[in-house]
Design a binder for these strands. Structure first.
Lengths: 205, 205
DNA sequence: GCATGACCGGACAGGTTGTATGGTCCGGTC
DNA sequence: GACCGGACCATACAACCTGTCCGGTCATGC
């Protein structure tokens, strides 16, 4: 009997945004898999029906959050992809930017890393994301290879796409562990140094 | 009314083993998280009560399987840890042995990688496992460092424990992706070559 | 013969998901 | 001012799940 229109407190356009914001907020303290739809809608002040009107399930909400979070990721990687100069420096900066990105969106990214295996939609989304980063890395590596004979020599006989993918996934894992607070990666400096060492030694040294 | 003693078909000592075998078998076709206790006990021909008598839950069964599977892993790594000669070759062989191990136990290892985040027991188990491998790597690296001035120079200023942990986790991830059939890692040769390249370039080149 | 340990079916409380039903409010339109 | 449709809500539901508890059955050993 009480379909009182909610006070327009929340700025957002409507329930959809409110649900997204709520999940992002909840993920700060709880793990994605321990969160039930009931909890989300209670926290969001939204009815069950409305929730399912906007989203197919909690995975769909997470997927949207991930899409938004990772958008910024590509921009972070751009400098290294495009730069003409000093691979090492731009590389290190890119890695540090990645760390920053993960720090800002730790909850959401952690959630998808832990969940992509269990949901086809999330799986496709995350694999595509990683593929994009790998693509960017390949582009840059090939450019360096053509420009610098030393690099050319070092990478002789190496499967560059596979190497690029490996480095991308190594990043994923280490950033994730950092987000989980697993030592020694919880120390950002150590994380960035080590990851940089891996990339540099694999590609340029 | 029908507590007919099961035909002693299954060789095993008892239900416990039967449950373990059954889960390992089921994991070949199904994902751990989609498996319910009901399915496991049906397949094992065991009552619900018996199941909970032997195990606290399906996670506990998985934990036991993992413990057994990983035991062999340490043996696989031993040659590289102890060998006095040619790091590269023993390293490559160790990595290949790891690939073999993952191939034989793909289902179980895949399951734990996908589940350790969601269960404290599994988390501790897996982190401990990784720590053990990291320890072994550190031991060997430090030995090489003392023995070989070139290595000493290359690793100057490098956080060896962190590097060793990174390489360990990189292995975890790539083996896992291979087990999932994600290209290009589904090709064992590519996997081993790439992983070897990463280790060698990070440590010795 | 009888206690005991190993094992069963069945039932239960409490939690989960996704869907369906019917009703309330609002901002328009005629 | 009557009316409509869109946005939204509470509630109920079927179909699972999990862990726990119970009374009953069988084989063995004493």
């Amino acid at each position: 009997m009480t379909a009182r229109r909610n006070e327009p407190e929340q700025s957002g356009t409507g329930l959809r945004e409110r649900i997204l914001d709520t999940l992002r907020e909840l993920l700060r303290e709880r793990t994605f898999d321990t969160l039930s739809v009931a909890e989300i809608i209670t926290a969001a002040g939204v009815s069950r029906a409305s929730f399912y009107f906007y989203f197919a399930g909690k995975q769909a909400v997470l997927a949207e959050l991930v899409r938004r979070a990772v958008g910024a990721g590509h921009e972070a990687a751009q400098p290294w992809v495009q730069a003409k100069a000093s691979p090492r420096e731009t590389l290190r900066m890119g890695i540090d930017a990645g760390a920053g990105l993960w720090q800002s969106n730790a909850a959401v990214l952690r959630a998808i890393v832990e969940s992509w295996a269990s949901d086809p939609q999330l799986r496709e989304l995350w694999l595509a994301q990683m593929a994009t980063f790998t693509e960017a890395a390949i582009t840059r590596i090939e450019a360096d290879r053509r420009a610098d004979p030393t690099v050319q020599a070092r990478l002789d006989g190496v499967d560059v796409p596979a190497l690029a993918a490996s480095l991308t996934w190594t990043g994923e894992r280490l950033y994730y562990l950092a987000a989980c607070g697993v030592p020694p990666f919880d120390d950002r400096a150590v994380l960035v140094d080590t990851l940089t060492h891996l990339w540099v030694s694999a590609l340029y040294d």
